[in-house]
Design a protein around this nucleic acid. Structure first.
Lengths: 198, 198
DNA sequence: AACTATACGGAGACGACCTCCGGTTCTACA
DNA sequence: TGTAGAACCGGAGGTCGTCTCCGTATAGTT
């Protein structure tokens, strides 16, 4: 990689991160290029599409989150460890308006680094909680991350209700746990309560 | 309203509904206008933006859903009634790719008819379930609808996993209920499990 | 039939995405 | 140090979708 190319690459990454924080991840790519002092052609050469750029920006960030997961792996209560970590993921996503939407939107082949790193980190935490019999065994880490991002997205679109995120996250966390008293309620789709057909 | 205007209005509504079903709600508005045999100007005069058009299309649909809510209000188990209804809402949203995203995206002033009708219908069901002491008392109907749409959205973006919707919906439903044995787990943010700081 | 308020339609401005290729710059090698 | 050429740059311009504007057409009225 030539020196000027490397310089431009780094500069773009830096400006992209700033722009994502300030204007959200839907900021026009041309703006990023301009602020980085390069043409759009250069941006698109280094990052074929918006997702490639986001992926590059966020792998750096994700490393902090995986580090947290590693600490939490030794925590006493595996369920608390898992849920704390999911909250941390949510908090991080909230820093970048639009990030949750992008992660949900992107097919699995997009933003691969971000996604796999998060899944590996969370997978361990989830497994521990499941082995302790505290979290439903049919849940996958991908599910929980999707739900977390969905909740962040919902909260993002409701800026006038600051507590929404808290309520929904509490709901989700309670829903992950196995029900202590008897069978789950949500699982076997009741389909008909009384005379309700469809 | 002049007769030709009424004709065009009706035609646009019809074609929009078809297009939303077939191509999703992000279909170009020009396509809808063309299929309706009118110019874009006419479309935009009747429906100032995409949300106005969607609102007009979906108020009709929402009436079916409110009808279901009225039936379910007399059901024996108020919690089953509520959850069955939410599933029905989800199923309906799934018919129109992009609808859930739009409902979440839209500020409360957009698609007002759809939103208020759904909230009124579901509000009654929620209140009954809460009065029976089966559903958390701090939840609002807007929360549950947002979460439902968020789950539909997540499932929509994961077309290769047909069961995702089922698992997440079950999770959400379990999470709505009050925990039988003691305090909730999700509510009082534990914040630190072991040595986990930021 | 003539008149006017109402409605139509599509050209075109705008903004964002992305591609392409002539021109420039770096670097390896003499 | 000079130079050949590979690597890279940049932005003009094509494409697509949204939305506006206004000259033209028409329904409804007298």
């Amino acid at each position: 990689m030539r020196a000027d190319a490397q310089r431009n690459y780094d500069r773009l990454l830096l400006e992209a991160k700033q722009a994502f924080i300030v204007h959200g991840t839907e900021v026009p790519l041309e703006d990023i290029a301009r602020h980085a002092g390069v043409g759009v052609g250069t941006l698109y050469r280094h990052f074929p599409d918006r997702y490639a750029l986001m992926n590059a920006v966020f792998v750096q960030e994700v490393e902090q989150i995986t580090a947290q997961a590693e600490e939490l792996v030794t925590a006493e209560d595996p369920t608390v460890a898992l849920t704390s970590w999911l909250r941390a993921v949510a908090v991080h996503s909230t820093m970048y308006r639009g990030l949750s939407a992008a992660i949900m939107e992107a097919s699995d082949s997009k933003m691969p680094a971000c996604k796999t790193l998060l899944r590996e980190a969370g997978g361990t935490l989830l497994r521990r909680a499941q082995e302790a019999g505290e979290v439903k065994s049919d849940l996958r880490i991908a599910d929980l991350l999707k739900l977390t991002h969905a909740i962040v997205l919902a909260a993002e679109k409701t800026p006038d209700d600051r507590e929404l995120f808290t309520r929904l996250m509490a709901l989700a966390i309670d829903g992950m746990r196995v029900r202590p008293g008897g069978a789950a309620h949500g699982t076997p789709d009741p389909a008909a309560a009384a005379g309700a057909t469809a």
